[in-house]
């Protein structure tokens, strides 16, 4: 393992951004989000979660993929892609896990070329969490706040320095390119980091347990709960906004739209939300999910029942963003708790 002293981080940003687009958690008006780093940006590595997860790096909110031109009756189409290597620095372990859940959707057959190219071109550096938030419950999904197996490089914040461990070929390569800024880590430093990691995991797991945020069994219970009254108690307070879906590291629904000036333009895909009224509205005017009740049910069933049925894992990483940001506290942790309660109640 290596380490980098924090004084050298500005040099690291400069060096990384000279070889690739460097995404870092950047603070603006009190909001921390991942953005391509520019000289003078206020980098915030302490903020636990960015408002928007770094899914927008691998799956941009808006992504033009085609240009077109209509001339008389002739149609010209050409692919449009913004290529280029990038480094994502500072993704938390839950967010890295979120990306691996997106992988399952986009990389399964037929493979999504736009997504897989972005995944290939990127190197992901994850920063371990030393102090999880009250809303964090990644341990409920067998994740560790101090470890991201899906990251190319894992970094632990040890105060004056970051402990640095390459975990993949891409990670090794990037490590080699900034070797001038790194030092070898002493054995006791590595040991301290691993001890910290274990402590943090145990602490968060205990807190999540106490809150009743235990999803085990929920996917089975939910199979018989499509018609349950439980959705009645959830949906009424839902505002029908898209906060939960857009800040969720695993939500991946998208729309496809054209834009044009005269007869020339482009086609893009963009995030969409199953919470929106027009998401399933058909041209005929029919809507199979006409009210917030069906939409709220769909969102939680998808995360906790349908996705697991297809991929064996819950589509939630316990990042706690919806717990923090839903304006009416209709979050997945509460749903897990309530649904879990139904199971034990019926036994």
């Amino acid at each position: 393992m290596k380490k980098i002293v924090k004084d050298k981080l500005p040099s690291l940003w400069e060096q990384l951004s000279s070889q690739a687009t460097l995404f870092l958690p950047v603070e603006q008006d009190g909001v921390v989000n991942f953005a391509p780093w520019e000289e003078g940006d206020s980098v915030n590595l302490e903020a636990l979660n960015t408002v928007v997860p770094p899914k927008n790096v691998v799956f941009p909110q808006t992504e033009t993929y085609m240009r077109f031109k209509v001339e008389n009756d002739k149609l010209h189409i050409e692919p449009f892609e913004q290529n280029g290597p990038y480094v994502l620095f500072g993704a938390r372990p839950c967010d890295v896990a979120g990306i691996t859940l997106l992988d399952k959707v986009f990389l399964q057959e037929p493979e999504d070329g736009l997504y897989s190219r972005r995944r290939r071109e990127g190197t992901v550096i994850s920063v371990a969490c030393n102090e999880p938030d009250a809303a964090c419950f990644c341990t409920s999904f067998e994740l560790e706040p101090g470890m991201a197996p899906g990251a190319d490089i894992m970094v632990w914040d040890m105060g004056d320095y970051l402990l640095w461990k390459a975990q993949s070929e891409k990670g090794e390569k990037l490590t080699g390119s900034v070797e001038n800024l790194l030092q070898e880590a002493a054995e006791e430093e590595q040991k301290a980091a691993m001890e910290l990691k274990e402590r943090v995991t145990a602490k968060e797991a205990a807190a999540a347990q106490e809150m009743g945020w235990d999803p085990s069994g929920v996917k089975e219970t939910l199979k018989d709960m499509f018609d349950s009254d439980i959705w009645e108690q959830f949906f009424r307070r839902c505002l029908g906004c898209g906060i939960c879906t857009y800040i969720c590291p695993t939500c991946h629904c998208f729309d496809i739209q054209d834009y044009s000036k005269d007869q020339e333009g482009g086609r893009f895909r963009c995030w969409d939300s199953c919470m929106f009224a027009d998401f399933t509205l058909m041209g005929s005017g029919e809507n199979p999910r006409p009210t917030r009740k069906e939409r709220v049910r769909q969102r939680f069933m998808h995360k906790l029942c349908y996705y697991p049925s297809n991929f064996g894992l819950y589509a939630c990483v316990g990042c706690g963003r919806c717990v923090r940001k839903c304006p009416v506290n209709l979050d997945i942790a509460q749903v897990i708790k309530e649904v879990g309660g139904v199971k034990s109640g019926s036994e």
């Binding site: 603006q28 505002l239 029908g240 898209g242 857009y246 929106f276 009224a277």
Partner: peptide
Amino acid sequence: RQFSRCIRCFACRNACPACSCRECIFDIP
């Protein structure tokens, strides 16, 4: 700068007691 952060979640509209249109112009496909 402020609007560049907008993620277009429409929470501002959906929480607003003055946004009471039966169908919002921004929802019409």
